[in-house]
């Protein structure tokens, strides 16, 4: 996989734009996912993921090919998410999330196809609760929690992505876990 990515990157660096499509295809879901959990809605997730890939393309020559491409890509995407969170009005995304139709749309789509609507409802309500609680985390805890438990990356990778010492990453994960535990213990 890494070998394939490296080959495609070399082609892109030589100027073969088409080779980039495969890279996008491979990472689109995880980068979109990162945006969704960091920013809270599909529209912004798509927007930020698209921007992350465009930035990766434009800056591909500055990518150190001895490193893991995914780490570099996640770094670009995470930084974009954090920038956007910081630019937002503090209460905007909470309101948008509570009154948004995002969860409802997902619910009605799944429920209509499901043989067991009650179970789907329950898990979707839980999904929604967890999603909102992650979004309530301050950005520095949110990013480590999303990278660790949604993207399932190692602490070392997270430390590289965020350009933070391992100890800082651990502290943030511990605090993020504690904050989520207090919110989710009774759900």
């Amino acid at each position: 996989m890494e070998a394939l990515i490296k080959k495609r990157i070399k082609q892109v660096i030589k100027g073969d734009q088409d080779a980039f499509a495969e890279i996008v295809e491979i990472y689109s879901n995880s980068i979109y996912q990162l945006g969704y959990r960091m920013l809270g809605n599909r529209h912004e997730a798509e927007d930020i993921a698209q921007e992350a890939f465009i930035r990766a393309y434009v800056n591909i020559k500055s990518f150190n090919q001895d490193l893991k491409f995914s780490t570099w890509l996640f770094r670009i995407a995470t930084n974009l998410c954090i920038d956007r969170i910081r630019k937002k009005k503090p209460d905007y995304y909470l309101d948008a999330e509570v009154s948004g139709t995002d969860g409802l749309t997902m619910y009605s789509q799944l429920a209509s196809n499901s043989p067991l609507p009650e179970i789907e409802l329950e898990s979707l309500e839980l999904q929604d609760t967890v999603h909102k609680e992650i979004l309530k985390l301050p950005e520095k805890y949110r990013s480590v929690i999303v990278l660790k438990y949604i993207e399932e990356l190692s602490l070392n990778e997270i430390s590289e992505i965020l350009d933070l010492p391992l100890g800082t990453v651990k502290t943030r994960i511990h605090r993020g876990r504690e904050a989520l535990r207090q919110q989710l213990r009774y759900v």
Binding site: S28, N29, R37, I54, L184
Partner: peptide, 29 residues
């Protein structure tokens, strides 16, 4: 349990036309 619940959130998929949109937005080679 908190970790299990967070890990258990459904995995989102990028929209089907995502790659095509990205490719169309790249600066022209």
């Amino acid at each position: 349990r908190t970790i299990a619940v967070v890990k258990g959130t459904s995995r989102m998929q990028a929209p089907p036309n995502f790659t095509a949109n990205v490719m169309a937005s790249l600066p022209k080679e």
